[in-house]
Every structure is written in structure tokens, then in C-alpha cells.
């Protein structure tokens, strides 16, 4: 149980970092389209500042925001898939993606259409965020496989 919880937290951490990558990239790509001088050092420093800022200087830490639905979706999938004889990789990937999609739908719904994660304001951004969730689910399934829980 402790191991499962640790795996869930680790998957959430990976998704958080990926979401920051998407958010920072989309922002810098837009600035680049205005011919602003974006170089490798700036990308790196902005990414690191975003990781710190979005998790420690935000009203709601991004990690917490992502963890809650992701852990809920993955844990529910784990419980449900115990009853079904199937490979769990795909359900976990789906659950990860769904958790991010849920977050991107729920947040604007709760905040009068405001989209606080700037990288998710476009459809491409939403797609990228969903893929981040899918990757989180996949990583979780890999960790579960290494425990031998994902065997058919």
C-alpha cells in the first residue's frame, strides 16, 4: 500500500514537471514568435523558475492541483482493474489522460471560465496536457509492472 502511494506521488511529480515543460515551452514559443531573443540559457532558467514558482509561489501549488485528480483516477483504475482480467497499461494511460482532461474542464468550470494554467488555453495546449497525463499513467503502470501487478 505504501509502495502504491509512493508510485502515485511519483507519477504525479512526473506529470507536474511535464506540465511545466509544456507551459513554459508554449509561453516561450509565443515570445519567440514576436522575435524576442530566446536562447537555451533562457529556456533552462525560465523552466527552473517555473518549476519553483508554480509549486511554491502559487496560491495553489501545481503539484497539489495535479496530484488530486491523477491519484484519484489512477487509484480508481487500480481498484476497478483488479476485477477485470486485462492488461492494465492502457487503462492507466487512459486514466492519466482523463485526469488532466478533467482538471482542464473542472478548473474553468469552477473559476468562471478562467484558465489558470496558461499553457492549456489553446486546444493544442489541452492536447499536450492530456498527453502529459497519459505519460504519467504509463509511468505508473511501469512501476506497477516492476512490482509484478500488471501481469495478465
Amino acid at each position: 500500500m505504501i509502495r502504491t502511494f509512493f508510485d502515485l506521488l511519483l507519477a504525479a511529480l512526473v506529470v507536474t514537471i511535464l506540465v511545466v515543460v509544456v507551459s513554459t515551452s508554449s509561453n516561450l514559443l509565443w515570445l519567440s514568435s514576436l522575435n524576442m531573443p530566446i536562447d537555451f540559457n533562457l529556456v533552462t532558467s525560465t523552466f527552473l523558475k517555473d518549476v519553483v514558482g508554480m509549486n511554491f509561489n502559487s496560491q495553489i501549488p501545481l503539484y497539489l492541483l495535479i496530484s488530486i485528480p491523477l491519484i484519484l483516477f489512477l487509484f480508481c483504475t487500480k481498484l476497478i482493474s483488479r476485477k477485470i482480467w486485462m492488461n492494465r497499461t492502457f487503462p492507466y494511460v487512459l486514466a492519466g489522460g482523463m485526469s488532466m482532461l478533467f482538471l482542464m474542464i473542472f478548473l474553468p468550470f469552477a473559476l468562471d471560465n478562467l484558465e489558470p494554467i496558461s499553457g492549456s488555453r489553446t486546444n493544442i495546449g489541452k492536447l499536450c496536457m492530456t498527453i502529459c497525463g497519459c505519460l504519467g499513467g504509463y509511468i505508473y503502470s511501469l512501476m506497477q509492472t516492476s512490482k509484478g501487478e500488471n501481469e495478465i
Binding site: M36, S45, D50, G53, N55, S58, L62, P116
Partner: peptide, 20 residues
């Protein structure tokens, strides 16, 4: 938002530039 002295409410950098 290409140049700004502020940060986003989510803690992220809106722009690393303050002048251009």
C-alpha cells in the same frame, strides 16, 4: 504580456523580459 515586471498568479514566468 511580452514584457512585464509581474509574474502569473500561478507562480510562472509570464515573460523573462522587462524591456524590449
Amino acid at each position: 504580456p511580452a514584457i512585464t515586471y509581474g509574474k502569473d498568479y500561478n507562480g510562472s514566468i509570464i515573460s523573462p523580459f522587462t524591456e524590449m
